[in-house]
Simulated scan of single mutants.
Amino acid sequence: MWLLIRTLLPLSILISGCSPASTDLLESAVKQAKFADNDPQHFEGRTPHRHDVHGIDVSKWNGAIDWIAVKRSGVAFAFIKATEGKDRLDPKFHTHWQGATDADLPHAAYHFYYFCSSAAEQADWFIRNVPKEANLLPPVLDVEWNHTSPTCRHRPPPETVKHEMKVFMDRIEAHYGRRPIIYTSVDFHRDNLVGAFPDHHFWVRAVAQHPEVVYPDRNWTFWQYTSTGIVPGIDGETDINVFAGSRQNWHSWVASVSR
């Protein structure tokens, strides 16, 4: 299978629209997108541009966003930073959330986890700030080592990490009715998550090597492939991601998680 897809979607869904004969059509669709990358990587021939569903993730650092222009550029989804720890709200969250809603762009909120406060406190903070709305993507738990944080660089052992994540995600799922997506980085996954949470969709960061290389045996649904993307409607560089399947797979997946 030409995409080398690793996701939690049923195999029958993955195969649909992803045969070798469809390669030229999918690459043609991607080339029609109006966004680009200031520092593109080719991932040894497994370029993310062979995937036809791309999206962005944004926070306060992206400033004001023209969401209509973003959608027109070919962006298909957005992950929007909402909260950090037990008491920090991204100051652009509500503006970005409303903008994506007005543009009718599928979107979800994400929480940046701090290992210096309890999982319950952080889940309650997220719930307090993120609307409980229908027809959106599942919420996201962002887990990575906070090596540049001025207040929390604590690195608990793997079993503690997984226990705290489960407490947080169970509380979020109970409230929103959707199992959270897990976002993670290469080092955090290697230290804590190999083989863990097989029933969750994973969103992985891999900007130098293909996920197949740095996340062996990990099923993934989203791949963050660059932080130097250029997207109309956003000033400066931004993160760009791909969905693992075809456009047909994407519509099926969104329908399944929006129920």
Rank of each mutant, 00 (worst) to 15 (best):
W2P: 15
L3D: 02
R6E: 12
L8M: 12
P10H: 07
I13T: 13
S16C: 02
G17L: 05
S19M: 10
P20L: 09
T23K: 13
T23H: 08
T23E: 11
A29Q: 13
V30I: 03
K31S: 11
F35C: 04
A36W: 11
P40T: 12
H42Y: 14
G45P: 04
R46F: 12
R50M: 14
D52Q: 14
W61I: 08
I68Q: 15
I68F: 09
I68N: 13
S73T: 06
G74L: 07
F79H: 02
T83Y: 01
E84A: 06
G85R: 05
R88V: 12
L89S: 03
F93A: 00
H96G: 02
G99A: 04
T101G: 00
A108S: 09
Y110I: 03
Y114K: 13
P131T: 02
N135D: 07
N135F: 00
L136K: 11
L141Y: 02
V143Q: 12
E144Y: 06
N146D: 01
T148F: 02
R153Q: 12
P156D: 05
P157F: 01
E159N: 10
E159K: 12
E164N: 15
M165Q: 14
F168T: 10
Y176H: 07
G177V: 10
R178D: 02
R179E: 05
P180S: 03
I181E: 01
T184I: 06
V186T: 15
H189P: 01
D191E: 05
D191Q: 06
A196G: 03
F197S: 09
H200I: 12
V204G: 07
R205A: 15
H210D: 09
P211H: 09
P216R: 10
S227F: 07
G229C: 04
I234D: 01
F243Q: 08
G245N: 04
S256V: 05
S256L: 03
V257W: 06
